[in-house]
Structures are given as C-alpha cells and as structure tokens.
Design a protein around this nucleic acid. Structure first.
Lengths: 236, 236
DNA sequence: ATTACTATAGCTCGAGTAG
DNA sequence: TCTACTCGAGCTATAGTAA
C-alpha cells in the first residue's frame, strides 16, 4: 500500500484487492466495469478506466467475451497483491502492545488455587505457556477506569488460547492468556471465559508464589505490564 | 479498502496503515509530516494535509509537542484499520483456487509404488489426507506450458504438509499435498521435495487404483482439478 | 444490457512561503 | 528545523454518448 519499494499506489492496490474478491486471482472472472465500480464506489466509467490502466501496467489481462469482460490477474499482478498482503500481515503481527496496569491485591475465594492446581489445567498451561504455574491466582482490583478500559481493549486482542474441558461432571472453562511482567517476575493474565469476577479484576498466574516472593498482602498496590501479540482481533 | 459499508477510501486507509507501522496504533507516536510523506510517496505538505483530514474525520488525534507532532489513532480509527485487516484476511483465506490441469498418463519407474506403499508413508498419508492411498502414483505429463506454469503457481500456495523421515538408512522426502478430483475420484497431487521428475510432471495418488478403475493406459489424456486452500503463500 | 470514448468538473498534490 | 497555509497545475472521476 505504501509505495515503499516501488509498490503500486493505493488506488491500484484497492482495485486489485477487489478483483481478488471477485475471483480473478487465479482464473478468469466475469467482471463488469459496472459491478467493479459499485464495489469500489466509482462510476462504471471510472472502473472501466482503471481496468484499462491495470492492463497497461501488466497487472491484469482483459479479454472481451461477448458483451462481458473476462479479467484475470497476471503473475505480476498476483505478486503485487501477495506482497502487499504479506507486508501488511507482517506489520500487523509485529505490532506489539505494551499496556501498563495498576491496582490493588485482594484475596479471592480460593477458587483460583483449586482451578489452576487442577492437573489437567496444569498440563495445559505448561504446554501453552512454557512454564508450570503456581497453583493459585493473584487477583488485582483495577480501581481506575482507564485500566478497566485497557483491560477491555486487551480482551479483544489475540492471546494464547487454552481450551476448556470436563472432568468428573465438572466443567472447566476455556481462557485466553496474555504474557507480562510484575516486578521481575513473568506473569500471565487470564481472561477466563466463565469467571466469577467482574471486568475490573485482573487474574494473574506465575511460576512462583507471588505473594510470598514479593511480600504482597491484601490492599497492596501493584503495577504490571502486559504485552499483547498484535493488532489482530482475537479469532472466535 | 473497498468502500463497502462506508469504509474509508484507499487514500485514507493507506495513511492509517502507515501510521500503524509507525506505532501510532495504541500509543502516541512521533510522526512528522515529512517522514509520513516519505513513507507514502508524498510531499510533506500533502502528508500534513492528510493528517489534518484524518483528525477531522475523527480517526486520529494530533497533538503538537514542541516542534514535533504526536499522533495516535482514536478507537474509531483503530476500528477502521482492524476491520479492514479482518475483511482482507477473510477474503484471502476464503479465496479458494480451483485449477484445471490436462496431460497424458505415463509409466513411472516404479518408485511411486515403492514409496507410497511404504508403511510409514501410508500411516502419514492416512493421517494427513483422511484416506489410505493405493500404493502407487499416477504420473501425468503436462504438455502445455500454461499447465506447467499453473503447477508452479500451485507449488507456492499453502497445501497439506507431510514431513519426511528416515528408515533403515534410507531417506524419505517431505512433500506437500493438494486435494483435487479426476473424473469422480478424489485425488491428491504431491509436490515431493526431492523428486525424480521435472516440473512438468504431476504425481497423483488416490484411494483407488486409478489405472484400473478408469481404464487408463499410457498416453491417455486425463483432466483433473486441484483445489488450493488460499491465496496466501505457503509458510516456511 | 454491456464497454469505453471525449470533454469537463472537481479534487488532490506540490511549490512557495509564513509562522 | 518543524507545521501548515494559499494557489495553481495536473490528474482523476464523472457525465454524456457512441457502439
């Protein structure tokens, strides 16, 4: 999109992308200048003009077939689109967010210990995160609205997904994980699909027993950072 | 990109994407109109103008900080970019390619039978493809250049990957599979990483003995179709 | 219904320049 | 240096129309 490395201008690229949507990438597609114009928000005439320009640039081939037009992308046109997509994907996946949160520690209902300590969760966390979490969660109440809002933002981003499961008639919820740091400890923030807390509570796990290691007690204020993988919204 | 659902025009979107690359997505970034112009292939003046327009449209916020400018995207601007990216991703991943090939059957060197019949390959194919292939390949020589070129195109796309292995000092090559149809039979085209044939030969496997079932003999012309998963180049 | 030409209107960009 | 104004040039879309 951006004309680094002699890439085509936005106008050209948006037209090529629309042609991809119309199925002209690998085989000829019936593309009328009218339909292309409608999709692009242009008049039929302007769309026709663009197609002629694209052909002139060697990015597509146009074949008149009766009253209609068959369009297919040339290898070069396909290459342009693919490299645009590749660069964009890379840009989106390289974009990392570091969000800072602050709140106060409070005691949960002991559920954290029970759940995180469950052998199956332990197995799944170890596989997903690369470490075996201490059986328990550190609950942090976010008092300021801006942190609560940040938490909402974070939730919509792509994190590490851990699927739920059933054992002995009991249901264990799926959750999404985001890595971060609290002091010098690596922590993981959990978004548990079915949680007992409201959206102003952050539930953290870590390899170590954080309360002990950092000398934390209820009401203490802690600050932690969370890194989100990308700009890409979470799937599903 | 395409203005379906009142999305911004290409010019706006390309500018927003460049701002994402500059790190203005989640926090303020120092963006000079000069540097933005350079990245977009515009002059400083035009870039400045665009930033002002984007602010007017409520997509970014501009804050003068000394001689420089701090830019960050608003939730709405971020939403536009993310929905553009989402639509694009979907379009690319939904785009399926159906390529038609035609060529003539010829006898191989018996290697196909040996390899595909190998118990470990049989196991791996069954897992990867969902059926147990008949031990042997149907070799099709593609005479026309356009088919050879199509085959090259196909190779660069994402297929089902089967890893190689070693057994008894012998090396068995990794390969990439693409599903398709020959007459009413489901077939799978193999791109064997280390093959004995040149790039004008398609090697097909199937659950059935195709030569027998379809009454094929050397020199017979066959037509088959291959479906590729997406426009996205194969990773790795 | 198509495509696509010509001519005009309108918009975007770039040069010059000020703050 | 930086931003961002005005104004004119050039480009692009549109309207009208032909095939």
């Amino acid at each position: 999109m951006s004309p680094r490395r002699g890439a085509p201008d936005p106008k050209t690229m948006s037209t090529l992308l629309e042609l991809v949507r119309m199925g002209a990438a690998y085989s000829s597609a019936d593309v009328s200048s009218g339909s292309l114009g409608r999709a692009l928000g242009l008049t039929q005439q302007a769309a026709s003009h663009r197609l002629i320009e694209l052909e002139g640039a060697g990015l597509i081939s146009r074949i008149h077939s009766g009253r209609s037009l068959k369009v297919r992308m040339t290898p070069r046109g396909l290459g342009e689109v693919r490299s645009f997509y590749g660069e964009l994907t890379e840009a989106f996946e390289k974009t990392r967010v570091r969000l800072v949160f602050s709140g106060s520690v409070f005691s949960g209902m002991g559920k954290g210990k029970y759940y995180v300590g469950h052998p199956e969760y332990q197995r799944r966390f170890t596989e997903a995160l690369g470490y075996r979490p201490y059986p328990g969660t550190l609950n942090v109440k976010l008092e300021e609205d801006r942190y609560v809002e940040q938490l909402r933002t974070l939730r919509s981003l792509g994190g590490i997904r851990v699927e739920g499961f059933k054992r002995g008639g009991e249901e264990f919820s799926a959750l999404t994980c985001f890595d971060g740091r609290l002091s010098d400890e690596r922590v993981t923030l959990l978004f548990i699909d079915i949680t007992h807390y409201n959206e102003s509570v952050a539930e953290l796990i870590s390899a170590a027993y954080l309360r002990g290691k950092l000398g934390l007690k209820d009401g203490d204020r802690v600050t932690f950072t969370i890194d989100a993988a990308s700009l890409v919204p979470a799937k599903g």
